[in-house]
Amino acid sequence: MAVTRGFQGRRSTAESSQLPPGQYLTRDFPVLSAGPTPYTPLESWDFTVRGAVDTPVTWSWEEFRSLPAESFTVDIHCVTKWSKLDTSWRGVSVDALLGAASPRAEYVTAFCDGGYTTNLPVADLRGGQAWVVFEYDGNPLPPVHGGPARLLVPHLYFWKSAKWVRGLEIRADDEPGFWEMYGYHNYGDPWREQRYQGD
């Protein structure tokens, strides 16, 4: 470890202990997207669980919004180094969505308006660890942050929390998603600092 001449840094607050390695705290909510923000009207929005499942299921916006929802507060960690603590969301647990379709395989590709994809193990979406959220901080999720609905998997780097998500495809093979194909880590655990391939 090489000391950088003259650098002292700002060892901040007690909150820093809640940060994974290499992350810094931010109070605003940065936006990172690979392309233009899609604006899908709610009447043409639906959410699908398909692929290796017993029963493919599709919900319209109205049907999706009538599913039991929960409010929760979590920390989020972006691979570009910022973390944001105590963010409040409301959404449908992915347990409920998977339960309706009964997956028969171990991997998921989340697919989205705009063509974005990301891959995860099914196990990481189960057990109250993941949601499809439609409210942030008490308000409808703004399009720039992934509205009308985004995946939220707070225990992984935030690129796994796909914006503008439209469904989950269950697969037997672990197919790398968008950033995973461009050199980012396949799994993305912030506490093990799995930012890039090989980390």
Binding site: M1, A2, V3, T4, F7, Q8, G9, R10, R11, G22, Y24, T80, K81, R195
Partner: peptide, 16 residues
């Protein structure tokens, strides 16, 4: 690129 700075006491900060 990611940049990492290290203070004399080992404290580090990273940015992209």
């Amino acid at each position: 690129v990611d940049v990492r700075l290290t203070a004399p006491d080992g404290y580090q900060a990273e940015r992209s």
